[in-house]
């Protein structure tokens, strides 16, 4: 996933501790280079997207 502002590749796992501001858990990834708040896809959406990518790769 790329940062929506500086376009740098966001690391899979960020070392920063959660600020606790999002009710119900973290839903933003703050870019470590520019600080832009990128939306962090929820688990279910991630699962669906990964499934789609896998099936696309399998059909290629």
């Amino acid at each position: 996933m790329q940062c929506g502002f500086c376009a740098r590749e966001l690391p899979e796992k960020l070392p920063e501790t959660a600020c606790g501001a999002c009710p119900g858990g973290c839903r933003k990834i703050h870019c470590p280079w520019c600080g832009y708040a990128n939306p962090a896809p929820p688990k279910l959406l991630k699962k669906i997207l990964n499934k789609n990518i896998d099936s696309e790769e399998n059909t290629q």
Binding site: C22, K28, N38, A40, P41, P42, L45
Partner: peptide
């Protein structure tokens, strides 16, 4: 992805 994530949040 960004729109759905932001809307859910």
């Amino acid at each position: 992805v960004k729109t759905l994530t932001r809307m859910q949040w």
